[in-house]
Computed example of a mutant assay.
Amino acid sequence: MFDVTIAYRLGPFGFLHLSHLPDGKDYPDAQNLGLLDQLMALKWVHENIGSFGGDPRNVTIFGESAGAGSCTMLPLLRMSENQTLAGGKSYTYYFTPESSLPIVKSGHSIELASVFNHPEMTADTGRTLDQTFAKTMRKMWVQFAKTGNPSLSADLSPDGRAKVWPLYDLKQKQVMVFDENNIHPEREASRKIVDWDRTYFLTKYYVF
């Protein structure tokens, strides 16, 4: 298995909509340049990964934060038939363990120390998360990278219990909830999600 990371244009250089300008028609792709960069990177992987020992017919894309958003948007662009053979599957999760540090709570990205097996990195978490929970997260991430499906059978799950991660779709909107004591699927609507980008300054929570 090989891991390839890419760079792409950010902010206004990659996502600035110009259609409202008098000559906006001359820049039809301006708002999608960052995603088109990613498509070119995937094309490079398809054409060159074999030279590194990889399989160009078995490429899984994944991301966290903006990377996850990119994975959701890429199937909407002009992808070739080979690039869409996987069917555009999408898996979504909510991470609920809270940091022991004041006001951080379940801040953005604090799960990464667990996913990448660096429990000593507690600058954001303030504490070491439950090890079985952390190991289960890593197993699911690896399973997704290997198979395109993060679900775990009982024999693969660190706690011996199967974890079935539902596909996310616009009708059911099911997500996997990463509760430190109970990893389980749930309807998104039952989570009562708050739009932190618009409200964190009212709550004194720091989300990053």
Rank of each mutant, 00 (worst) to 15 (best):
L202T: 15
V177C: 01
P185M: 14
V207D: 10
G160I: 14
L101H: 08
V4K: 14
R187K: 09
P158W: 15
K192T: 10
L85N: 03
I103A: 13
L42G: 09
S151C: 10
S51I: 06
F116Q: 05
P119R: 11
Q38R: 03
L36K: 00
F13A: 15
E47Y: 04
G67L: 04
T203L: 06
E98A: 02
Q31H: 01
H17G: 10
M121S: 02
Q31Y: 02
K192F: 12
D169E: 13
L42Q: 10
D26N: 02
G126E: 11
V194Y: 11
P56R: 02
L101R: 03
L16E: 05
S19Q: 09
G54M: 09
F15R: 13
G88E: 06
D195V: 10
A7F: 08
P119W: 03
P158Y: 11
Y206Q: 00
S65W: 13
M40Q: 05
H17T: 01
A145I: 06
H20K: 09
D179F: 15
L76T: 05
L42E: 15
L85M: 05
Q83T: 04
S106N: 07
G11E: 00
S106P: 09
G50M: 01
M140K: 11
A145K: 05
L129I: 00
Q31S: 12
Q31N: 12
E186K: 15
